[in-house]
């Protein structure tokens, strides 16, 4: 690595930013924004390190940045912050994977979710009249039963196979059984306090036994699946 390829400001008061997180390059002579992944990507080291974050030049700049004297007010602010009793969540937390079916958001416990896969052809099964079972899909060489949650819940119209960019296949497993659910969008895992889970106060119309409760999330209501019940319902409809 020759030094003229990396124009690092020697007295760096500018925070070394990964351009991916700061898309507006400041125009400073910082190599990661010039020839790195924030620039034209012409740095000869880039194929080796893949991202500027892995490059010793970048970490050296970070070390120089941290060698600054403490900014004014920083120490007192931090001292107060750490003096407070732990704000770390002590309540029991549950990790859930959030996904969307039509306009409604649902959740499965993260432990039950094995994979989020791209949509792919579903091979329909002959002599299957129920619409719940859509067919078989190939997930890493294994043929798994693909189940329409839309049909199971009668959420809107059945557009499960309609292709759009956010649509995914959610591979879930329980006790060695694996099922694939086409979903319209996967938000990803999210942590909730277990105490925030609300059970259904009154028997909700069409609320099947496989829903465990409701959660509020970003102004939306998320229905949490009871994995065991869900698998029981699906297995029953398969037989």
């Amino acid at each position: 690595m020759t030094s003229d390829q990396h124009h690092i400001p020697q007295a760096s008061t500018e925070r070394p930013r990964c351009p991916r997180h700061a898309p507006t390059a400041t125009g400073k002579a910082d190599c990661w924004n010039q020839i790195g992944i924030g620039g034209d990507g012409s740095c000869p080291e880039l194929p080796k390190v893949i991202c500027c974050r892995n490059c010793p030049v970048y970490s050296a700049a970070a070390v120089r940045f941290l060698a600054r004297p403490l900014p004014e007010g920083y120490q007192l602010e931090r001292t107060e912050e750490f003096a407070q009793t732990s704000k770390l969540p002590t309540a029991r937390q549950i990790s859930l994977v959030l996904f969307r079916l039509q306009a409604d958001w649902f959740a499965l416990p993260t432990w039950a979710c094995q994979e989020v896969a791209e949509r792919r052809p579903i091979h329909s099964l002959p002599h299957r009249s129920q619409q719940i079972v859509l067919g078989l899909v190939n997930v890493r060489g294994e043929l798994l039963v693909c189940v329409s949650l839309d049909q199971l819940f009668q959420v809107g119209s059945s557009q499960a196979q309609q292709a759009h960019t956010l649509a995914r296949l959610l591979v879930a497993g329980q006790n060695g059984h694996r099922l694939v659910f086409p979903v319209d969008e996967v938000h990803g895992p999210h942590r909730f306090d277990a105490k925030d889970l609300q059970s259904f106060s009154a028997p909700v119309a069409r609320a099947p036994a496989c829903l465990q409760g409701l959660l509020a999330w970003e102004g939306r209501t998320v229905s949490l699946f009871d994995v065991e019940q869900l698998f029981t319902v699906v297995t029953r409809s398969l037989s």
Partner: peptide, 22 residues
């Protein structure tokens, strides 16, 4: 590096005390 409250009469290497999570 938090602000440390010095301990009088303590050896020099004891920089002070601070409150950490109460």
């Amino acid at each position: 590096l938090l602000a440390l409250r010095p301990l009088p009469q303590a050896p020099e290497s004891v920089a002070g005390i601070f409150y950490y999570r109460g």
